[in-house]
Structure formats: C-alpha cells, structure tokens
Design a binder for these strands. Structure first.
Length: 743
DNA sequence: GCCGTTTTCGGCCCGACTGTTTTCAGTCG
C-alpha cells in the first residue's frame, strides 16, 4: 500500500518544524509547510499523480519537492528529513506537542537553557528559568506546566485514523505471505476508540517463522522490542510513528477465541469470563473449556462460536466496553447499531466559497456518485475570517446559486440543500442575520473562537444559540480534539436539555481529528432523546462518504438509525425545521408544505410569496403561490400540495411521555405499604435499589437497557417504579443513572 | 524551496489572540 497524501504531508510539516527549530531560513520553512498543504489537498494519491506527470504542473511544487516525494514513496523518508532528525534531539521534537509551544520557542528554550527533554523543561519552568528568556514571563511558565500535564495525560495515544492506516498497511503486507491463513487488527482499533495505544495484529498460521521475520523487517518498524527466539507466538516492535505494535500468532483452529480475547476491552473480557464461570465454563484466548478438568470444548475458529457457547448473540466490537452489553445481549436487546448504509445524506460540508477545496458542483457530483439522497452545503460565516467565511450578501448569493443549481436538475437523485455553519459569537448571538438564516434549509451553529470561556459562560452561549429557533444542529459540540485538545468547559447536560426542548440535533462530527461528540456523549444523547447528525465536515470531495469516524463514535454510543437525523428522509427534517421556525415566530405561518415533484427538478424547492427564496419543504400560503413562484425548467416543474404540517415528530425520534392521569393512578396504587407486609413487592424492591448510592451495577444496567429501548413496557416493573417517583419516568431514569454514576 | 521575471535574484499569507512590552514576537487556525 502506497503512502497516503496526509502521511507525506506530515513529513513535510516535520521538516518545516525541525528546520525552524534549527533556525533555518524562514521562507524555506514556509515552503515546506506550503508543500505539505498542497500535498494534503491533492485530489488523488500523490504516487498516482506523479506517475501521470501531473504533480510538477502544480503551482508550489518544484523540483525539490518532487525529489523528496519520490524518496518518501520509496522509503518512507527523505535525505533532508533523515539529516534533520539526526541533528535535532528526539526530546526537542516532543516539546512541540505541548500546546502553546511552537518551533521558535523550542529553539529559544534550548539555546538559552540547554533544555533537551520534557522533564528538563518541566524542571526549568518550576525553577523560574523560563522567565529569564526575553519576551517570556511567568504566564508562559504556568502555561507550559499546564501544557505538560495535559500532554502527559494523553501521551502514547494515537488518533484512530493514524493507527488504522499504519495497521492496515501492516496487515496488507503480511497477508501476502502463504503462511498467513487469517489476519485481523484487534484491540482498541477494532473497537474503534477515538485514540489508540498499542496496535494489535493477529495472524492465524501454522508456520510462525516467516511471519515473524517479515513483521520485524517492515518499513514501518523502527526497532524490535520483544521478539526472536524464546518468545514463541508473539513479537513487539516500536513503529516509526512511535506507536508500539504487537503481533500475536495463533493456530487457525482457535483464531476466533484469540480475536475475541485480544479485542477486549479488559472490562468486557472480565465480565465474559464471569459469565462463563457461572455456566461451568472457562474462556481463554485458546478457546472454551470445561471448568472442571479443563477439557477443551471448542477452540473457536471464529468469534461467533465464543459467544454461542455462552448462549449469547455476537456482540459488535464497538460495544465491548463492559457498559451493559452482556445484559442487553442476554435479553435480546442489543441495539441495531447505525451502519453506513443507513445514512441517506450528509449535513455538514464546505466548498470553495469558504475554506473547502471543491466547488458546489464538485461536492454534488461526488455525493451523487456515492448515492447520497441529500447534502447540505454549510460554509463558514464571516466571523471566521481565516476560513473566508460568508457574510450576508455572499450567503444570499450562494443561496440563489444553490437553488438555481437544483433547478437545473443535473443530479436528479440528489437534493442539494442550502445551509451554513454559522459561528456562535461570544455572547451566544449568531454571526448572521436570523432572517436570512430562516430562509435556509439547514443551519449548523458552531463555536470556533473564544473557546476558553468559563463553563457557565460557554453553556449560556451554546444554549442561547439553540434557543434562537433557526439552528438545526450544534456543530462539533465539545470542541475536543482527541489526543490533542481537551473539550472546552461546557455543561453538556444543559445543552442536551435545551437541544431536546427545541428539537435541535447535536453533531457527531466525523472529522478524524475531531470525532466530536465522543462515544459517551453520543450515548447520553441516545438516552435523553436528543437526535444526532453524523456528518463528515468534508472540506473536499474526497472527504465525502468518509462516515467511518462519525459512525465509530455513534456506534460506540449505542445509537440506532432512528436516533440519527441523516438516517431520516429529508422531508422529515424539513418538517421539523418548519415546525420549529413557526413556533419561534420565524418565517412560515402558512398551511401546507409544497414539495416539487418534477423529474428534471426533483427535490427543488419552490419560492414563496414576495418572490424570495424558500427552503425545501417550506410552508407556503397556497398551492397557487407555490406554482406562481416556482422556477426551473418552466412549466415542467410541478408543485404538489402535500399535507398540513404535522405537529408531532416521528415516534421513533420522540420518546414517549407519561400521561399525567396514569401517574396519578399509579401513585394511588402505591400508597405506603403497611408494616406487616413482609415481602416487598418487586416494584418496592426496585425503588429501594434505585435509591441506593452508589447505584448497584445491576440497577444501572437495567436502567440503561430500558432507556435504550426508549422506555415503555419493555420492563414494566421498572416503568412502574419510575412512575412512582413522579414526573416523566424517562427523565427520572436519566437523573438516577447519572446521579449514581461518575461521568 | 518556489516563483517569476528584472533571466540571476528578490520576495514570499494573515488575523486574532496572548503575553510582554510601549511596538513586537510567537502561536494557532
């Protein structure tokens, strides 16, 4: 497998950093950075473009860059990078990973204080040596110490995309060997965690020697940690990206048992073995055994066999965190996890109008090729100058362009929605005129700047945006960058409550460096009835369709298609928006939804009174008004009066509410029990369990499972107990579970 | 290092923010 463009780009960035630390010519540094940006943005693999002679034609790519790329493709490095790495100590390179420290500061710190390692820097900062450097003061020292602490917490963790990329390459190389009968990545990569520690590679083979030999000499390998003779069946290496990779060699007959064991998580395995124990069985990476006498029952060539022996259905790796998956599996209540093919559209992407690399048409063409049913164009707003954000005039112009594009009907199966990713300003106001926002089809509101507010201020800020009525979704809600930046201070609980009240979705941003919301937050959304948008945040056509990282978080968060906005048809989302706008007294106010149905202009929205532009599914005064203002292929465009706007959202998105009358009845039924009743009813026993702190694991699981079913009669005893506590039983369940858990 | 032209070498992206300083330097996106 050839190097990917992002990997080549990363090497150019590293060269720029190292050269800058050495005090090299800043324009040369800048040229390396520019090369990195260009390579990262190439439409096709650099290797391919090089072969076709397309690379030298690109502005900014000169002879030197071509020469280096050729070397990198051949040997994953180049002469200059080798030389720079030799001349700059490893410890100094590590300092760059601390937030607030750039190459120039590394240089100054090194030159003035002789610091070459993280520990030395920490010592210097504590000893007050930082302040002796010109233009650096106490704040810098404090910032550095905080940065070191944050870095230490996340050290050794690699982003999923990076770990997976190198892992896949190793798998591809080993798979070629005749001795390899089966191969898989296990561990946290397989569970699709956002950050990965070590890489686990499993190989099924009857002939370990050639596999071991090949593994140790892969180009990705920097040094062998454990291996060679005496270490049968395994080998650990340090990779060039500083990750550790462990190779395990397994007999094919027990590959499934090993795959399960090494996929983990640890907690999941502990619970699995507990369960096996209770059944008189023993489970290990070698298979399933009788507990007495340890006789082998089954080596388990595949993973399903492991679960089958325990009377369980196969559990998806993403759920294997010991967070209630066994209880759910045993009761036949595992979630039907959202899959790529469930996603009908993508509601977050950028074009060349702001900081994207593809035009409106480029994005639409790619989306159509991927079979998307709809996409929303959501460029940045003016506050994000660096991204060339749109002001009102440019957005209005783009809106007209999108409507005209739709009217042409070039991609009849695809609906292109006019949207925006509007900045949430410091005080919670939106960066664009709400009147204009109300005319769009899909509005994402995001925080990009001033991210260091207090928790209270940040929460007020985001909640205010939600309350505006024109916002459909909060983009990358926590601002986290796994392994790089902590989420900003935010009361997500309050945000979710507001989101639910105003029917606003929270985004699960699938940008591989964001994955925001994370898995735990996705699950909280699911439990609270807050819908989630799995979006790519694509900045080029190549990024479209890359739902894998958003899906990873959503699946780890137990989310099902019904909880995902972009797994719903666009008409459903349009209705939700229309209803919300009307409730907030913004636009709308008509009586019917008009949906154009013509062949040539499928999915195009008609205009409404006054000749202004209206979003798809917009509420229109009448059929006549719609037809009068319809544009497109002249009279070929039909506008159809569909139905009055439904007031209720689809049942699967909106959890049921408890009827007040029912509550009252149950309360009466559950009047205080008399002392002589020896045996408490199941409901009373459960009430007692619900009042316990900390909450028993079993009770917690029962609550989670019930919540995952959307409440209701899946567990009548629990429902009765919750209703006895008064109020909305779903709400009670959330409160109890989060009161009884440290989140 | 790359570009463009002045064809042999000069000029190279930028704004917000922060911290340290009274005019700038470094980081981040």
């Amino acid at each position: 497998m050839p190097l990917e463009n992002t990997e080549i780009a990363a090497m150019f960035v590293e060269m720029a950093d190292l050269l800058q630390i050495k005090g090299g010519d800043r324009h040369r540094v800048g040229a390396f950075r520019r090369s990195a940006r260009i390579i990262e943005g190439l439409p096709r693999p650099a290797a391919q473009m090089l072969e076709r002679g397309e690379l030298p034609k690109i502005r900014g790519v000169g002879k030197g860059t071509i020469h280096r790329i050729k070397q990198m493709l051949r040997r994953h490095s180049c002469d200059d990078l080798d030389e720079l790495r030799r001349s700059v100590p490893l410890g100094l390179r590590e300092l760059l990973k601390i937030k607030g420290i750039g190459p120039t500061m590394v240089r100054n710190i090194h030159n003035r204080l002789g610091v070459t390692t993280l520990d030395q820097l920490e010592h210097a900062a504590k000893a007050g040596a930082i302040e002796t450097i010109p233009r650096m003061g106490l704040s810098h020292a404090q910032k550095i110490l905080a940065g070191i602490e944050a870095y230490r917490k996340r050290r050794g963790k690699t982003a999923l995309i990076d770990a997976e990329r190198v892992g896949r390459r190793i798998v591809a190389a080993l798979r070629e060997l005749p001795a390899v009968e089966g191969i898989a990545l296990a561990g946290s990569v397989r569970r699709r965690k956002a950050t990965i520690g070590d890489l686990d590679v499993l190989v099924a083979t009857r002939d370990p020697a050639p596999v071991l030999a090949r593994f140790q000499t892969l180009p990705e390998v920097e040094s062998v940690l454990i291996g060679g003779r005496g270490t049968e069946g395994r080998c650990s290496v340090r990779l060039r990206n500083q990750q550790q990779a462990d190779l395990r060699l397994l007999p094919p007959a027990s590959f499934g048992a090993g795959l399960h064991y090494f996929t983990g998580s640890k907690q999941h395995n502990i619970e699995l073995r507990k369960r096996a124990n209770a059944m008189g069985l023993k489970v290990s990476d070698k298979g399933v055994f009788h507990r007495e006498g340890e006789a082998l029952i089954d080596g388990c060539a595949d993973e399903e066999a492991v679960f089958r022996h325990l009377g369980l259905p196969w559990i998806a790796p993403e759920l294997r965190e010991g967070r209630g998956e066994f209880e759910a599996a045993a009761r036949g209540r595992l979630p039907r996890l959202v899959r790529d093919e469930d996603l009908l559209g993508d509601l977050h992407m950028h074009t060349t109008d702001s900081d994207g690399r593809g035009s409106l048409r480029d994005m639409a063409a790619k989306a159509a090729a991927l079979g998307h049913r709809y996409i929303a164009i959501t460029d940045h707003s003016k506050a994000l100058r660096i991204a060339n954000g749109l002001d009102e005039a440019r957005l209005a112009e783009q809106l007209g362009r999108i409507r005209a594009f739709e009217a042409r009907g070039e991609f009849p199966q695809l609906r292109v929605l006019a949207g925006v990713e509007v900045d949430i300003l410091e005080d919670g106001r939106l960066d664009l005129d709400p009147e204009l926002l109300a005319q769009l089809d899909w509005v994402i509101a995001s925080v990009h700047q001033r991210t260091n507010l207090s928790r209270e201020a940040m929460t007020r800020r985001v909640v205010r945006a939600i309350e505006s009525g024109v916002v459909d979704c909060i983009g990358h809600p926590t601002g986290r960058r796994p392994g790089k930046r902590d989420p900003f201070a935010l009361d997500l609980e309050a945000v979710m409550a507001a989101a639910r009240e105003h029917d606003v979705a929270l985004e699960c941003n699938g940008g591989p460096m964001r994955m925001d919301l994370g898995d735990v937050d996705c699950r909280r959304c699911g439990e609270r009835g807050v819908s989630v948008s799995i979006a790519t945040d694509a900045h080029s056509p190549a990024h479209l369709g890359r739902h894998e990282y958003g899906l990873a978080m959503a699946r780890r968060g137990w989310l099902e298609p019904a909880q995902i906005v972009n797994a719903q048809p666009w008409e459903t989302l349009a209705q939700r928006r229309t209803r919300r706008l009307r409730e907030h007294g913004l636009g709308g106010g008509g009586v019917a939804v008009a949906v154009p149905r013509s062949e040539g202009a499928a999915g195009f929205a008609a205009g409404y009174e006054g000749g202004e532009l209206a979003p798809a599914g917009f509420v229109l005064e009448s059929l006549e008004v719609a037809q009068e203002h319809a544009w497109g292929e002249g009279d070929e465009l039909e506008v159809e009066l569909v139905s009055p706007v439904p007031v209720e959202a689809p049942a699967e998105v909106e959890p049921r509410r408890v009827e007040p009358e029912l509550e009252l009845e149950l309360e009466l039924e559950l009047e205080p029990a008399t002392e002589e009743e020896a045996e408490p009813s199941p409901v009373d026993a459960l009430l007692e369990a619900l009042a316990q702190r900390p909450l028993a694991e079993e009770t917690k699981t029962r609550l989670s499972v019930w919540l995952m079913q959307g409440g209701g009669d899946s567990d009548p005893t629990l429902e009765a107990a919750l209703q006895a506590l008064g109020g909305n039983s779903l709400q009670r369940a959330f409160e109890i579970i989060y009161d009884g858990t440290e989140v």
